[in-house]
Design a protein around this nucleic acid. Sequence first.
DNA 1: TATAGAGTCTCCAGTCACTGGAAGGTAAAG
DNA 2: CTTTACCTTCCAGTGACTGGAGACTCTATA
Lengths: 129, 129
Amino acid sequence: MNIGEVSTHTGLPVKTIRYYEDINLIKPLRDNNGYRRFRDQDIHKLNFLGRARTLGFTIEDCRTLLALYEDETRASSDVKRVARDHLAQIDAKIADLKGMRQTLSHLVDACAGDDRPDCPILKDLGGKL
Amino acid sequence: MNIGEVSTHTGLPVKTIRYYEDINLIKPLRDNNGYRRFRDQDIHKLNFLGRARTLGFTIEDCRTLLALYEDETRASSDVKRVARDHLAQIDAKIADLKGMRQTLSHLVDACAGDDRPDCPILKDLGGKL
DNA sequence: TATAGAGTCTCCAGTCACTGGAAGGTAAAG
DNA sequence: CTTTACCTTCCAGTGACTGGAGACTCTATA
C-alpha cells in the first residue's frame, strides 16, 4: 500500500504518517521509485498509534506502549503503570480546567454583555474586586 | 522596579516578562544602563496577564482583553463574547478529556497489572477486541 | 580598590506533535 | 502527450514559553 491509501485506511494524515517514520515509530519499506510501501504490520502499528494518541498518550508513551506490545514477554504491570500515570495526568488536567470553568462561568454570568463599559470580567482580571 | 523584583511581585518568571515585552504586550521604560524599568501600570498589566493566563486565555485573547481593559468606551458585550468563546473551548476540552478518562479507566481497571503478558490495554490499542 | 556574586542584557535554540508549502519526480487516466 | 493526482524531500511555522551562552552592570565584602 502507498501512503495515500494507508492514510485513508488509518484516518491519519499523510504528513503524520511520514512524521511517525521520521521519529522511528514505523519503518515502512521502499519501492524502487522511492515510494513508501506499507505492510500489514505497519498499518497495524499506525492504527495502534492512532488509537493511543486518541486516548491522549504522548508520542513517547506511544513508543513505550508499542515496544511493550511487540514484546511477548512483557509484564502487564508495565503497561498498567504507563496507563495509570497518564490517567493521573488527565485527571489533573480536568481538575485544572474545571477550576477555570468555575471562575469563568461566574464571571460570564455576572457580565451584562451590553453596550455599557462596566464589566465584572475585566474587574476581576484587573484585580479590582 | 527592575525585572527581578517585578518577577517576585507578579509571580511571573523573568523570561516570561521579557517575552511579553517581545510580543508587545507591555512596554517598560529603559534605564541608562539598558535595564528595564517597570512602572506601576506595567506591573498592573502583568498581573492582569498572569490572571488571564491562569484562566486559560490565549495570548491573543489576552491582547484583546487588555485592549478592552484600556478602552474606557468598550462595550461589555465584547468582553463577554471573548470569555464565552473561551468557556466553550474549555467545555470542549473537558468533554474530550472525560471521554479519554472514561475509556482509559475502564482499561486500567481491567488490567491485572501483574507479571503476566496478557493485557486488555494493549488488546484495545491493537484493535483486538 | 579589587573582586566575587548576583542581577541584567541579547540572541539562539529547543520544546511538542504536528502542519503548510515549495520544488521536483512518478504514475494513472484520457 | 498532457493533465492531474500522487509521491518525494526539505525547511519553516505553530503556542507560549524555557534553557543556555556570552557579555555587561551593580552591590557587598575583604
